[in-house]
Design a protein around this nucleic acid. Structure first.
Lengths: 284, 284
DNA sequence: GGATATATTGTAATTAAATTACAGATTGCG
DNA sequence: CGCAATCTGTAATTTAATTACAATATATCC
């Protein structure tokens, strides 16, 4: 385990002086790895053996060994152990924290995601006559993104962020159509309705939502992410990124399933954009 | 630069004995970081001062410092390798690869992002009379997401993914207004026009785009991400995720700047959603 | 080709750093 | 309040790293 995390986790088992050492190290991990035990002891206002004991308590052989571990932790990219943004964080701190917590969220998402479900979802999508992406509020932008990606596959794709349009679209769905409902909580009533309506009309409903949620119950197939969300900010952040990555995965699975000649189709779409863009070289 | 790479690169400038040291280190880097200078000297069959001189030649302060650098290189070398999806990948493989390459992209984005620019952007946003988010195609969903986040701050926020609406909105902008233009390549002609128009009308234009692009040239302030994009798939993936995280960061900076009482405002917005949702406990 | 200069390497001495042993201080508990 | 257990610091010791210098090898020039 990462030494920095270890320090934070075992803060309780430290003695008073050891905690002083921990505080100094956590406050300036970068300087610590370039300090001698004497310098660190002075900074923490403790004696040198105390620092040494601190190192040993963390299952390292001594101070030099501890510095080695610390250096590796820092390189690994976890300077800010506490990944939650706090009131007094400066731009440097909150930027790092948000990047890191997002990466951490993606990491857990990767571990928890159900590959089988993904495979079945790709199956269903490749066979779809029409694909609809529905999301409300925060999840609407994810739906838009999905539309943008699947649209390139030359498949009928629809995306609505308006309840009424979604409803009409759901009522008009038929067998062979696939409806993808996106909601982090899975507790948005309107979206549950949409899922139910679509199913009643024989569409296959894929839910990108929390497992065991009301929405999940209405779906044919559930893709759950279960990302830990920092609710302090009252804004969905990591969950939405994870949803986007999931969309990427579905789109990738789609193209792979369709085979190589299909990929030329994608290139055509991309090339079509050329006219609307400045050339890569000759501007300034 | 990575010490290991440095060793490989400067192999030519080493003397005979120094090369012996280099060989031993490259052969067992892991044991090296846990060895004393004496042990390493013995392994390489050279004297201790030779090892020390070797370390100095690599711009380190001495042997302990060298070990520190080496430890960091080793940790840095194996986070998540940027792995490209291949034709024959199964669901398990491409799922893992996409997660990992996204995480890798976020990692480089974090390292390259300009904290100062972020801070200034937050500055500008907190003082804005009106905030507009503009994106086209793939970047439209990022703009939507931004709108969704900043909307909660009770600031006038506007978001258009339609060129005509963007144009009209840009023309109507005035001093104190902030226009955020989002484009991965920064070469979308229409968006460059929008940026120019907005600036002519005294708005502050923030570009979330490639550094040194035509769009960047039209902006007051550029937030560049420079994420390596896997163009094999002909779909923007990692770049969009990075953009989203950047929006998260700006939004977070915004709330922090506004202070704690402001955060209650966010809670109110969130609570307002309650009526549209199923209760957390009593369904099934 | 040999003599001198230059660079390289090693030995031994020195210095710096880390660790240990032990004593004094503090805290908790009866 | 006093004893025991746990911390903490001082000083001694050990270990590791560095420096100074000498010896050796290598290159250069006449």
């Amino acid at each position: 385990m990462n030494v920095l995390e270890k320090i934070v986790n075992s803060v309780n088992s430290f003695s008073k002086s050891e905690r002083k050492v921990a505080d100094v190290i956590l406050a300036n991990p970068q300087t610590t790895i370039h300090s001698s035990i004497a310098a660190l002891a002075k900074m923490a206002d403790v004696s040198e053996p105390t620092v040494n004991r601190f190192c040993r308590r963390l299952d390292t052989k001594g101070f030099p060994d501890f510095k080695l571990h610390l250096a590796q932790s820092l390189a690994n990219g976890t300077p800010y152990v506490n990944r939650h943004v706090e009131e007094e964080d400066g731009p440097e701190a909150y930027t790092a924290k948000i990047f890191e917590s997002t990466m951490a969220a993606l990491d857990t998402a990767r571990q928890r995601v159900d590959i089988n479900a993904i495979n079945r979802a790709v199956d269903v999508l490749t066979q779809a006559k029409k694909i609809s992406f529905f999301g409300l509020g925060a999840s609407a932008s994810v739906a838009h993104d999905a539309q943008n990606k699947f649209f390139r596959f030359n498949v009928p794709v629809v995306c609505f962020d308006d309840i009424v349009m979604q409803r009409m679209s759901a009522i008009n769905s038929a067998e062979g159509d696939v409806v993808v409902c996106i909601s982090h909580t899975g507790r948005t009533k309107n979206l549950c309705d949409i899922a139910a309506i679509a199913r009643e009309n024989d569409a296959t409903v894929i839910g990108i939502t929390a497992y065991d949620s009301p929405l999940a119950k209405e779906c044919t197939l559930v893709l759950s992410l279960d990302v830990p969300e920092d609710t302090d900010m009252y804004m969905p952040m990591a969950s939405r990124v994870a949803q986007l990555v999931l969309i990427d995965i579905l789109a990738t699975g789609f193209t792979l399933r369709r085979g190589s000649k299909f990929r030329e189709n994608l290139k055509k779409v991309k090339d079509s954009l050329r006219g609307s863009r400045f050339d890569k070289k000759d501007f300034n």
